[in-house]
Amino acid sequence: MRTIVAASAVLILAVLPVAAPWLQFVLTLAIAKGFAALGVAVLLRAGLISIGHAMFFAASAYGVAFLARAGINDLGLLLILSVLAAALLGAIAGLFLVRYRAIFFAMLNLAVSMVFYALCAKLYSVTGGTDGMTVPVPAVFGVVLGEPTFKSVLFYISLALMLLVGLAIQRYLNSPLGHALAAVHSNEIRLEYLGIPVWAVLLVAYVVSAALAGLGGAIAGFAIGRVVPDFAFWTASGHLVLIAVLGGIGGVPGAFIGALFLELLHSVAVTVTDAWNLIVGLTLIVVIMFLPQGFYGLFSRKEASSL
């Protein structure tokens, strides 16, 4: 039953841009943010809230821009290398950060990401400062494409990745390692007494979450064609947490549901009002107060984890 629902949802997503071409960009961006929000949701399972994950989103997009500048011009290679770069950054940051909990974890992530943001904005000669860097149209499997074709290809690749990566993350969360991650939220003392190294469990999760944010950032970079420091600003990190919580952290689909909901609502809302943040802020507050399991909690029968 759930497979059918999921399959039809993906199918609908796949044909939507055929019916309404303007949706293609919106949906690509939604999937990109969905990946990053999924990364945030992975950490939220352990009770850790990061207000800094936009750093990995931005780092990967900058990575693409730098690699393209260095002459690498293949979509697959650029995606892989930039996600690896984000994962590596995640491993380095994670080594220091997974020792901390609660508000301290949140604030340290914020601090790291703001250092990153400020460097991106200020090192004009390297990063182009607040103008950012362009992300050129790459070749896909050796085929050089025009921009409109590339954007279509990017959308379908993102959709396919959403399925593949989503399934992989689902497996991870169901594995012993994923269960140990959720157990960090419940009882660290018991974990230690089971002989499970909590820091290693968290480090794996942190690297996974950084890689997911990186994948989202790379896709967003390609879709937008530019990366700017604001990708890494703290409000962007806040938005990722917001998407994860709106969608619900109980399962992998939650992050994507949240992102799609928000991006679609946004593209509708901007035609009527410019009070977009007002709507989002209010929605967030209402969802937290009345739907603690997020939108995904409405669909899933199994008890989903909430904050």
Binding site: N277, L278, V280, T283, I285, M289
Partner: peptide, 14 residues
């Protein structure tokens, strides 16, 4: 803390 941060983040946006 996650709930507190998110609720006040919602307020911030508004």
């Amino acid at each position: 803390e996650a709930v507190q941060i998110l609720i006040t983040f919602g307020l911030f946006l508004m």
